[in-house]
């Protein structure tokens, strides 16, 4: 059984401006999925729909086979959630925040709590409002993982943290959860984090799933073609080719991303458009993000 099922999810905040426009994908148990996309692509909305904090206007979402709007408690007890704008009660001490969570999650594990408190060096007697942003985020993560959730949803969890804290924070939590076989869906703007941690990438663009691929497959089977301007090839022509995910008109050349290996892409462009003087190579995730989400598709 899938842990997460999104089926044709639509959601708008204003009439005629869908933030999610038919998102469909599923996540099996034990997978670590990176959700990427530029600002406004719908990542946060999708994660909030998954949490049951927003209702899908069309389509169905199922977590552990349950509807998060109909069985919110059942679902939330099995989820750990950290978001960028999540606010812990600022007037409570760290240990009181942990007490609050301990009682709400039957599977709370104090050994994980102790371990993470030690590892992060969180002062347990300090009020949340007196912590630094990074420490507060660490407490939030601690609360999200200490009950060994079956699913961890992280919405830009490391935003605003310094590189060392970010890596420590993410790797610690993901290692911990991998040990218990939890599933993780996390959104991030840091492609290095996504490449390091995820085994599958879902890229959202304008409310739709643009890419849903295993990371290895992405590395092997996607390519970037730099088509020189002098041949008279246009963006539209490139986009009409099968396998072309996006094309941008840049000053040096036309940049086109293909869902093909570099050799196949070269062959395709040569046979279909007669272009021979092009550069074709594998594409790094960050470059792919920039090429596909960077506008002028």
């Amino acid at each position: 059984m899938n842990i997460v099922d999104f089926d044709n999810i639509h959601r708008a905040y204003q009439r005629g401006a869908d933030v999610l426009n038919g998102v469909t994908f599923s996540i099996g148990a034990g997978r670590v999925v990176g959700l990427v996309g530029k600002n406004g692509a719908g990542k946060t909305t999708l994660l909030r729909v998954a949490m049951g904090m927003l209702e899908a206007q069309q389509g169905a979402v199922r977590l552990f086979g349950l509807d998060p709007r109909r069985d919110p408690l059942e679902v939330k007890r099995r989820i750990g959630f950290v978001s960028e704008d999540q606010i812990l009660p600022p007037f409570l001490k760290v240990e009181q925040v942990l007490d609050l969570h301990r009682g709400l999650f039957p599977t709370w594990d104090d050994s994980i709590t102790r371990d993470l408190i030690d590892r992060f060096g969180i002062p347990a007697q300090t009020k949340i409002k007196a912590l630094s942003k990074g420490q507060a985020r660490q407490v939030a993560l601690l609360c999200a993982v200490a009950h060994k959730p079956e699913l961890l949803l992280l919405d830009e969890p490391a935003a605003g943290l310094d590189p060392a804290s970010r890596r420590d924070f993410l790797e610690t939590s993901i290692q911990l959860l991998n040990e218990t076989g939890s599933t993780i869906l996390f959104s991030s703007h840091y492609m290095s984090d996504v490449e390091r941690l995820a085994d599958r990438i879902v890229m959202l663009h304008e409310g739709r799933v643009l890419i849903d691929s295993e990371l290895d497959e992405l590395r092997e089977h996607y390519s970037l073609a730099l088509v020189p301007h002098n041949g008279g090839t246009s963006r539209t022509t490139l986009l009409s080719l099968e396998g072309c995910l996006g094309a941008r008109d840049r000053s040096d050349a036309l940049h086109a991303v293909f869902n093909l290996e570099p050799e196949s892409t070269s062959r395709l462009l040569e046979t279909e458009l007669g272009i021979t003087d092009l550069l074709c190579s594998r594409i790094a995730l960050e470059d792919m993000f920039i090429e596909l989400a960077g506008g002028q598709q």
Binding site: I117, D118, Q125, K127
Partner: peptide, 11 residues
Amino acid sequence: ESTGAVAPALA
């Protein structure tokens, strides 16, 4: 305010 590293209750 105290900034003790680990809450005794937790330990």
